[in-house]
């Protein structure tokens, strides 16, 4: 526990609403405690702004423990701030010192339009999920859980991919605004498990085509995404998805067509 407080300036993007012009504004914040989280620092700022009659800075947040994926700040040019494998909400002010000017921006990507200030609309991710990010199993029709053993390594790997919190930092970090890491995490999670096999080809084709359709860019294998990912999702899953995709494309091209089906 620390008692030495300090002051910083936050240079933050202000924008009234979607499609409206925006600009940066500088706000000093005094009395910053090193044990404060970054978002708590913004809370303090917002209370001060409120009392000064300035509208508080809108920013997205919810769980404040790095799991819901709501928080989405680009701090000094890196999504989620200075640390590796840490979400914005888990960034603490002890990473800063007196007099620092901290630039806070929203995600910049066309499929994630700014809603207000630092809040962006990431519903595109939900649409990708709806395209095939599921196993079609009806409630109540599941077989006994232990009837299909899953090797521990496979389950662990699926879990590595499944940890994605859907925050979109991968898109924000990528020069191309590519959603590859997110989609690859989803595709790999389900594609690794035996339960996900029946829909494996369909899933990857549908999710990729939806991703493309929503206007995300393409991947040039730069690995900014995995470096910015708060859950350290590995870009090996992108490789895995590329392979899955190629296989699915070729399988669909060479599968036999039943007589009469061509009509």
């Amino acid at each position: 526990m620390s008692t030495n407080t300090f002051s910083v300036t936050v240079r933050v993007w202000r924008q009234d609403g979607p499609g409206r012009p925006g600009a940066f504004a500088d706000y000093p914040v005094a009395g910053v405690n090193p044990d404060m989280s970054f978002l708590e620092m913004l809370d303090v700022l917002n209370d001060e702004l409120t009392m000064k009659g300035i509208e508080p800075v809108a920013f997205a947040h919810d769980c404040r423990e790095g799991i819901c994926g709501t928080c989405s700040l680009v701090i000094d040019g890196k999504p989620h701030g200075p640390h590796h494998g840490v979400a914005s909400c888990q960034t603490y002010m002890r990473s800063y010192k007196d007099g620092d000017v901290i630039v806070v921006e929203p995600y910049r990507a066309r499929p994630f339009p700014v809603v207000k200030d630092l809040v962006t609309d990431r519903s595109a991710f939900d649409k990708i999920q709806q395209a095939g990010g599921f196993i079609s199993i009806r409630t109540g029709s599941a077989p006994e859980a232990n009837s299909v053993p899953v090797p521990k390594e496979v389950a662990d790997l699926a879990m590595d991919a499944a940890q994605c919190i859907g925050c979109g930092a991968c898109v924000a970090a990528c020069k191309n605004s590519s959603a590859m890491l997110f989609v690859a995490a989803k595709v790999s999670h389900l594609g690794l498990l035996p339960q996900g096999q029946p829909e494996r080809d369909r899933r990857v084709l549908a999710m990729v085509s939806t991703m493309d359709g929503l206007g995300f860019g393409s991947c040039t294998n730069q690995y900014e995404c995995s470096a910015a990912c708060p859950k350290l999702i590995s870009h090996d899953f992108i490789a895995r998805m590329n392979r899955d995709y190629a296989k699915a494309v070729f399988r669909s091209a060479f599968k036999p067509v039943a007589a009469g089906a061509e009509a």
Binding site: R11, W13, F24, V74, D76, G77, K78, V103, E105, R108, A173, Q222, Y223, E224, C225, S226, A227, A228
Partner: peptide
């Protein structure tokens, strides 16, 4: 972006 850091 106003500030952009390359990280990976």
């Amino acid at each position: 972006y106003r500030v952009k850091k390359w990280i990976g």
